[in-house]
Amino acid sequence: MLGKLIKYDFRFGARTFLGLIGVLLALGAVAPLLGDDMILGISASVMLIVVAVVSIILVAQAFHKSLFAQQGYLTRTLPVTSSALLGSKLITAMVWFNAICLSVVLYVMLTMRSVEPIQSIAERPWDFVLLGVSLETQGLMLILTLYTLLTMGSVSVNGRRLGVVGYIVGAVIPIGLSALLSNVVLPVLTPNRYLMISEQGVSFVPDATGQYVTVIGGGADVTVTMISNALVDWISLAANLIVAAACFFTAVWLLKRKSNLA
């Protein structure tokens, strides 16, 4: 059943997402002919933001239309589990997420006219595997937070649908939980990895001591940084995966037991 759901969810988004990717790559091919490097650099950042926003909107629309609009009368009476319904949407969204990320990298390469990203990967493959895992985790968190908040909107309390209130609650909880884990719980549990230093920024290149330093938060004159032996911190990663999983199961439970179709 899951495979069949994926087939149809995929078919629904295929044209739109492939279109988006196509436009992005076409622009990437054309842009270098138009401007100088600085403009292209700025345009790359702008494109990144635009593509991110558009993608999120598309994923949210697809999710909402299938489960909470009129089509819900069909999809939610199919003899499939809520886990399968959500799982299918998660998998297709992750595929699009990866496709879009890849396209963005290609766009950057096209506009910068360089193959530097590929060279970097070739130099330090293991780091980029970790980066990839980190990226996937971010993607999962993003999509699942989106799905949880949309599902929350359809939940009824005392006969009243939560709507926008549900969206807010459904967004705040995963984000808050993740921030809590990363910025509070983990620093407390593993104090020797965290130092109060006031300078460094984000760096993907190890410093003289061979360690990576990442700023993760702080106030006016104090920055809390995290020092780890790897580009990606496994513990943070695990924490985010746990929050993502919790989102998934929460969304399934909400869909099955608490959600009402309008």
Partner: peptide
Amino acid sequence: PGLAAKREIAYLPDRESLPDWL
């Protein structure tokens, strides 16, 4: 009402519910 019950019910809603892009 749930998964097993859905197999035993054929439901015709009072509104359009079909995937319209197919």
